[in-house]
């Protein structure tokens, strides 16, 4: 019984972790291709979910609403690249980071101004009911979310390794010159990456939105993804996944086994402390290589 309960908590944590990975993935995509730590990813998640439910509320059917939101998110991503990031090219990374903090405020204000501040429900048609696997109860919805994330990651992995465009995107991360030689202008590549990040934000927004309700608090998922990022590294897709799993499981286990001794509410800071302690032992992160600054 005891270990069964433990297992339940662990699996629940791992599945929640997948949801963190999903948001972290949006960061990694943009960071890899343009070196920008996009703090506004959370705002993009809110923007996506809010747009989707509002379009749906106008009576537009599910799939069409999804398509329209996708178009909107890609347009948003491309627009951000154009208006905010292109003028800041060659600025220090910290400046770009601060710009995305500003962007996040802007988008949160914009989303609520256009779509209102009401909390919307979002129904994806998957009941959030427990489901018995050899005596361990797992949420159906969590399982579904994990499956969606898994598919998304697999698709992205295939896209990056098998398509010409994907390879060009990867090359950008390693070497801008090499990317240019593939024949795709850098600025197009960046626009595409921001578009893809908009798409990932949409998926995350739908999953998180149906979980928490579509509301302002959705932007806070960014705060869940940050410890995942410093654990897994900003440039590693596997890092985002494994980091998400570790943070998700660690958080749930700590909540259940440590929480009672600390009078609860530790989920806000625990992932950060976990990631921080890990970094102190291994500053290069989970999958990073040790790097000695060249002078």
């Amino acid at each position: 019984m005891e270990w069964q309960f433990f297992l339940e908590v662990l699996v629940g944590g791992l599945l929640a972790g997948v949801m963190y990975s999903l948001v972290a993935l949006g960061f990694v995509l943009i960071y890899k291709a343009s070196g920008v730590f996009n703090f506004a990813q959370g705002a993009m998640v809110l923007f996506a979910a809010l747009s989707f439910v509002s379009i749906q509320a106008m009576g537009v059917p599910f799939w069409l609403a999804l398509l329209l939101t996708l178009v909107l998110m890609v347009a948003l991503g491309v627009g951000i690249e154009r208006v905010v990031l292109r003028p800041l090219v060659n600025q220090p990374p910290i400046t770009l980071f601060m710009a995305t903090i500003g962007l996040s405020f802007f988008l949160e204000g914009l989303a609520q101004m256009v779509w209102g501040t009401d909390v919307h429900g979002l129904e994806l048609g998957i009941a959030d009911e427990p489901f018995d696997v050899a005596g361990v109860f797992i949420s159906k919805f969590d399982l579904f979310a994990a499956a969606v994330c898994g598919t998304l990651v697999a698709t992205l992995a295939l896209f990056f390794s098998k398509t010409k465009l994907g390879r060009a995107l990867r090359a950008v991360a390693d070497d801008h010159q090499a990317a240019m030689s593939v024949g795709i202008p850098l600025k197009h590549i960046w626009a595409i990456v921001w578009g893809v990040a908009g798409f990932v934000a949409l998926v995350a927004g739908l999953l998180w939105g149906s979980r928490l309700g579509v509301q302002f608090a959705l932007t806070l998922v960014v705060l869940k993804a940050l410890p995942v990022l410093i654990l897994g590294g900003f440039t590693s897709v596997p890092g985002a996944i494994v980091g998400g799993l570790i943070i998700g499981a660690g958080e749930k286990l700590a909540e259940v086994y440590l929480g009672p001794f600390l009078s609860g509410g530790i989920e806000n800071w625990f992932p950060y402390m976990l990631a921080l302690l890990f970094l102190l032992v291994r500053p290069e992160g989970l999958f990073g290589e040790k790097h000695i600054e060249r002078v």
Partner: peptide, 24 residues
């Protein structure tokens, strides 16, 4: 040991932890 973004994120640990300590 850690720099840049990693440190910025680490300062968030201070933000959340200290907030929690004073409320709990």
């Amino acid at each position: 040991r850690i720099k840049g973004f990693y440190l910025a994120v680490a300062t968030l640990a201070a933000q959340f932890f200290i907030e929690w300590v004073f409320t709990k």
